[in-house]
Design a protein around this nucleic acid. Structure first.
Lengths: 137, 137, 137, 137
DNA sequence: GTGGTCTAGACCACC
DNA sequence: GTGGTCTAGACCACG
């Protein structure tokens, strides 16, 4: 797992970590049972405080994506959470609306957004080509 | 303009207001020259502190979406900001990746996401059917 | 809310806080909508680090017992989590088994345990009379 | 003795072993003088490190439940420890309070808890029907 | 004043 | 080595 974090991003570092790991799972680059880098080692790689990585791991565990075995490490769960579909769909609708309004305000059209999605699909599968971008409205 | 805010949402209230107004502009429900509800009146409608609405308006003004005319009120700008396209495209890519990973983790596929986009397009045009959803990863 | 913590207890401090708050909710001493002491103020009262209280609050929020509104405070949720009954029953069975085996090993009988339960019921309703006890096997 | 361990349980593995053995003693399934599986053999059965089993046995020995006879094996003590009754009663009260608050939060009532106790009594006597459950608040 | 985030460093329990 | 917990202090965003 190669992660990229951007300390000056508006999104908190622990969230950047969470997002990149869930994206790796969504894209199939992390599979059930895979061992994650220990939070200490990852904190050294990323040059951030161990607690920051730990917080990301803790939240991912609470969400059911990963589980820890004391003394052994942290692993991608065998059975990923099958979240409340209704809630999820609400969130997905919200994300879709945000994406679309951003695009429209930038003068882009619906087909441009679909192209962006196709690009995103490639990135999920192959790993990000570029660093995380800043959030906006 | 009917706005919906959720005080326990992770997104700050002033951001919720900003987002709903920019979405209304993107969807064509608010057009150049339209007058916005005064921040005083809006704060009463939403039962929140006037300063919170004012902050949303201030930020929207700084971004070039709206402008204040002293003694007359606040209006949607005649010429909307044409933001740095590069930056915007980066953000749109990020939003697309987030949207897609959420959907994949929920077990949905690419076509489902395109359908969600089409639904979002309708909502932008006609106004939201449902309240804003909480952010997630 | 008057809380009692015991730093030399085997149970982590943040767990002691969680337990006392959930017990207060279970016993009806804290009701939906009640405002909790801010995590800073509570940390002063208990003479512990603010982060320790915050961790307890964070976990309780993740479990759905309380919710926070930025800048306003933390409140008992209007609708308490109706957790997976199956899981809960499993945990309750485990707790019952633990309780009973402890009692049997101490030479007590089933009726003694029922008496202990009745005493516990009173404590839940009226607030604890004694400090938290140490966990054992 | 058939033991069940769950590496991702919050309760340390050596504690899971201790608890299951003390419960077997409390339920009468293990009696004074009975020979325990050797820690070597048990570690193979459970697919865990031998040191982990040894630690459980060591602690049980320190508590006076079992005793090692060099070259012969490990046995349940002839005279079980008669622990400090006061301390025990305090712990039992705490466990009772925890059990009850869990049940109340799950919407169960006092009689349901008594039923759970009766079920627990059967399990202690006949051996567990289900795997150990995860601890919660 | 409230919560949100982060740091640097420490000690312990577990495997 | 791993994760679990705690401290003391800091800065920022929000209402």
């Amino acid at each position: 797992m190669q992660l990229l974090i951007n300390p000056s991003d508006e999104l908190p570092i622990y969230r950047q970590i969470m997002r990149q790991i869930t994206e790796a799972i969504a894209g199939g680059r992390l599979k059930s049972g895979d061992k994650l880098t220990s939070h200490r080692e990852l904190s050294e790689q990323l040059v951030i405080a161990p607690l920051t990585v730990k917080k990301a791991y803790d939240e991912l565990e609470a969400l059911g994506f990963i589980e820890t075995q004391r003394g052994r490490g942290t692993f991608v769960c065998a059975t990923l959470p099958q979240p409340n579909l209704e809630k999820q769909i609400g969130q997905i609708q919200a994300a879709a609306r945000k994406l679309l309004s951003q695009a429209y305000l930038a003068g882009l059209g619906f087909p441009d957004v679909v192209k962006a999605l196709e690009q995103a699909d490639r990135e999920l599968t192959e790993g990000p080509a570029a660093p995380q971008e800043k959030e906006s409205v």
